[in-house]
Design a protein around this nucleic acid. Structure first.
Lengths: 344, 344
DNA sequence: GCAACGTGCTAATCCGATTTAACAACGGAG
DNA sequence: CTCCGTTGTTAAATCGGATTAGCACGTTGC
C-alpha cells in the first residue's frame, strides 16, 4: 500500500549492528546482552527512520497476531449492540489488540466460512456473540480453540460465557417497587416467554420473572397477575388496554421490555391514567426510547458495553479459559416512572 | 491457537510433489504448467488433510492481506451506525476480505495510534468514517495510502468520499409535500444549522434546506417560515409549541430530523392537532422511532447500509482511487404522516 | 600460564507461503 | 546424431522479523 516500509534490516544497517542485535534491542528483551551504546544506536536509528515493525511478519514466527475475531449473528443490527462492540474495541485497544468484526446473519454456512477466514488469518482467539441471550451451538471449527461466548450459552462447549445478570435484575425491579411502597396491584406485562414467540424471551424472561417474584414474595408483596405476550410495543398496548377494559386497576406495571413499556404508556394515556401518579412502571433493557419517553422510564439496563469489555478481558487473560458463566450486573436506571402507590 | 495446522509442505509431501508444484496447483495458476495428474493429487491431498492456507504467511510475500481497516470517530454509538458497518461487512465478505473495525472516539492521538496499528498489520486499505456528515482532516499517516472517506469530506486530501445525497433528499421532501397538494402553510423546523449548535447540521442542514426550497419554489409553493433550532426532541417540542402559541397554523411541517419530528408530534398532540389530518409532517433520517411513532413518520432515510457497502466496493475496485464525491440516494420512506392539506 | 567464565555480538535457521531461475526428459527438425 | 523447443517439475531465494547456537574477546581464578 505505497512506498517501501522501513524494515528492521534498514535499522540495523544504519545503527551498524546485525539484525539480531537490532531485534533484541527493539524488543527490549534482556535475556540477550546488548551494550547500552548499541541499544541506544538502534533505538535512535529506529526513531530517525520512523521504523515500525511489520506485525504480519512477526506473527509468522511468534504465532501471535495480536488480533481477535468477533463472530456474531446479527449484532450490528440491534439498536444497542454498538455498545457491545465498543466495549470490546476499547478493552482490546488497551491491550494493543485489534478486532476482526464479522456477522453471519444467522446463516450456518456463512458462519463457518467466516470462522475459517478468521482462523486463516491466525487470530489469537474468537468471541462468539449473540444479539440476545440464548443457547447456541458454535460451529465445529471453533472446537479446541480459544473462545469466549458473549451473550449466549453453549452447554457442552468448553468455553466461558458472559451474560447479563437477568436474575438479579428481576430482583432489583422488585426492590425498586418495594422501596416506593408498592405491595399490591402489581402486574407483569410480557411474562416468561416460556413458549417464546419472541426468542429473546427464552432466558431473559424466565430469569427476570423468577427474580421479580422471589423478592416480591420475600417483601410481603405479590403479583396480581402475569400477562404473557410478545415483547413489542403493539403487544404492550393491546394487553394493557385489555387489562384496563377488564376492570383491573393496576398500581404498578413491570414491563418485560422498554418496547412493552412504550405500549403500556400509550394504553394508560388513552385511559386517562398518568405515570407515575396513577400507575408506576418499571422496565428492562434501557433502549433509547427509555429516556425519551415522558415521564422518563425507570429501567434495568442491559450492560452491553460491559459485556463486550468483559469478553475481551477474559479472552486476553492469562492461562487457559475455564468453562463457566460470568454474569454482568444490569444497573438500575432510576428515572421518573416509579412513584408512591396511588391511593384508593 | 491449538494443534499444528496442516501446511502446504504437508500437502506436497502427501501428494509426492515439491512445495512449488503444490503452490501452483492450489492457486490454480496456469502460467506454470502442471500435469492434470499432479494437480489432482495435490488437490486430493489438500482436501484429505483439510489444508487451509496461512493467509498471514502468504501476505508476507504477496503484500496483500485481504484486509481493510475501518477507522471511525464514534460510529458504534450512533443508533443506526450498525448499518454502516453491516453494509461494509457484507460487501467485504462477498470479496473475501475481513474488516478491522476501530473507533477513536474523536481523540486525535488514539486515531493516529489506531491507524498505525492497522498499517503495522499491513491492511490493504483504510476506510475513514464519520458518524455524521462533516469536514475532516484525516491523520497524516493516511496520506498516500489507499483510503475512502465515508460520510465525510476532506478537501485537499486525495481520496474519494461517500456521502448521503442530502440535496436530493431535500428536493424529495418538497416533492412529497407538493404531490399531496401542499403549497402554503409550510414550515421548516430545525433549519440550516448554518451556525451549528448540533454539529451534524453543518452539511446536512444546508443541503436539505437548499433542495427543499428549490423544488418548493419551482412547484409554485413557498416556505412560510424556517425555525432554526437544535435537532433534538426537546427543541422540536419547544419550537412547535411556540409556533402554535404565536397563532400560526401550519399545514405542513418539514422537520429536519426524526427527533425534531417526535417533539413536533408531542406539541401538536398537546394542542389538539392531529397528524396528518390537521398537519402533515415530513422528516429526515429514518431512525427507529420513525416507524414506531403514531402515525408512522414519512421520512427520508439516511442510507447507512449503502454508504458502508459503497465505500468497500470503491476501495476494492480496480485501479487507483480518484478524489471525488459519491452521493448515495436517500430513499423516501412513505408512511402515514403526510395527507392532503387541511381545509380552512 | 592456562582453563573457566562472563560479555557482547553475529551467522544461520525458521515461520509458511510465493516466485524466479533452472533443469531433466522427450520429441521433432535438420 | 545433434540441436532446439516444449513440458513438467523442483531447488533456492524471498518476504520481515524472532530465535538458537556459537564465536570472539577480555577478565578472573588458581
Amino acid at each position: 500500500m505505497s512506498e517501501r516500509r522501513v524494515t528492521m534490516a534498514d535499522v540495523a544497517r544504519k545503527a551498524g549492528v546485525s539484525p539480531t542485535t537490532a531485534s533484541f534491542a527493539l524488543s527490549g528483551r534482556t535475556d540477550m546482552r546488548i551494550s547500552d551504546a548499541s541499544r541506544q544506536r538502534v533505538l535512535d536509528a529506529a526513531r530517525d527512520l520512523g521504523y515500525r515493525p511489520n506485525v504480519t511478519a512477526r506473527s509468522l514466527r511468534t504465532k501471535s497476531t495480536q488480533t481477535i475475531g468477533f463472530v456474531s449473528d446479527r449484532i450490528t443490527t440491534t439498536p444497542f449492540a454498538g455498545d457491545v462492540i465498543r466495549g470490546a474495541l476499547e478493552a482490546a485497544r488497551e491491550r494493543d489488540h485489534l478486532l476482526f468484526i464479522t456477522e453471519a446473519g444467522g446463516d450456518r454456512g456463512a458462519e463457518s466460512s467466516l470462522v475459517h477466514a478468521l482462523l486463516d488469518r491466525q487470530v489469537d482467539a474468537v468471541i462468539y456473540a449473540s444479539m440476545f441471550t440464548r443457547y447456541v451451538t458454535p460451529p465445529k471449527e471453533l472446537f479446541g480453540r480459544r473462545v469466549v461466548l458473549l451473550n449466549c450459552l453453549a452447554p457442552g462447549f468448553d468455553a466461558p460465557s458472559v451474560v447479563p445478570d437477568e436474575l438479579e435484575a428481576g430482583r432489583d425491579a422488585a426492590r425498586a417497587l418495594l422501596a416506593a411502597g408498592h405491595t399490591e396491584g402489581i402486574w407483569a406485562i410480557g411474562g416468561h416467554q416460556a413458549v417464546p414467540a419472541t426468542p429473546e424471551g427464552i432466558i431473559a424472561g424466565n430469569e427476570r420473572m423468577r427474580g421479580l417474584e422471589e423478592v416480591l414474595r420475600a417483601g410481603g408483596a405479590r403479583l396480581d397477575g402475569v400477562v404473557e405476550c410478545d415483547w413489542d410495543t403493539r403487544d404492550g398496548h393491546r394487553e394493557v388496554s385489555a387489562l384496563l377494559a377488564a376492570g383491573h386497576r393496576p398500581r404498578a406495571l413491570v414491563c418485560l421490555t422498554d418496547r412493552v413499556s412504550m405500549g403500556a404508556y400509550q394504553a394508560l394515556g388513552e385511559a386517562g391514567l398518568s405515570v407515575p401518579g396513577d400507575v408506576s412502571v418499571v422496565s428492562f433493557d434501557d433502549q433509547d426510547i427509555a429516556s425519551v419517553l415522558r415521564p422518563a422510564l425507570t429501567t434495568l439496563k442491559l450492560p452491553h458495553y460491559q459485556l463486550g469489555r468483559r469478553a475481551v478481558e477474559l479472552i486476553l487473560g492469562e492461562g487457559p479459559l475455564e468453562a463457566g458463566v460470568h454474569r454482568v450486573p444490569m444497573p438500575l436506571q432510576e428515572r421518573a416512572s416509579i412513584g408512591a402507590p396511588a391511593q384508593g
